[in-house]
């Protein structure tokens, strides 16, 4: 009879502990709202929305070997360069790992200003712009993101500037 009670207490304790720990883990784990997993966008400003966490870890590899560590409470807009990122939230315990990709975008804008043209790099990567006259390449221009310059020419071709990594 005594051992029956002991076994009953064993079972209650073991199952009670398991249920309590499971609900503790599910509650304490940060709730990640946005950005959604596998997001692909050309917009470099990304809104991170989450609860029950206070550190955003962002890295370009799943091992988080050199993470960018950002302290925040719940909503935060972070500007990221084009590339693939893995991110998670740290609170009492860590959240799931999600990934997001900022797609590189080349965007050239040409505006007539008198006899010249104002050319603007409206994309998110630095550009090498080839300037052509009579179908011949006459000059090259490096345009950083958001940079504008006044130039003359008949054709302008923008391509990404450098970088293999």
């Amino acid at each position: 009879m005594k051992s029956k009670y002991i076994k009953l207490i064993d079972i209650v304790l073991i199952f009670g502990t398991i249920i309590f720990l499971a609900s503790f883990v599910s509650y304490a784990r940060p709730l990640v709202i946005s950005p959604i997993n596998n997001l692909e966008t050309t917009n470099q400003s990304v809104l991170f929305n989450f609860e029950r966490g206070n550190i955003i870890l962002i890295d370009d590899n799943l091992e988080f070997s050199s993470p960018q560590k950002i302290y925040a409470e719940n909503n935060l807009i972070i500007n990221l360069k084009p590339g693939k990122y893995y991110w998670k939230i740290e609170g009492m315990i860590g959240s799931e790992i999600r990934d997001l990709t900022i797609l590189s975008e080349i965007n050239l804008r040409l505006k007539q200003v008198g006899d010249l043209y104002e050319i603007t790099n409206a994309g998110n990567v630095d550009l090498n712009v080839g300037i052509y006259e009579n179908e011949n390449l006459v000059d090259n221009l490096i345009l950083n993101v958001d940079e504008s310059q006044e130039i003359s020419g008949e054709k302008f071709i923008g391509e990404p500037e450098g970088g293999n990594f």
């Binding site: 975008e105 965007n107 990567v125």
Partner: peptide
Amino acid sequence: PNVLSIGITPA
């Protein structure tokens, strides 16, 4: 304002 603009992704 006369403006031309074109983009492409990925670069």
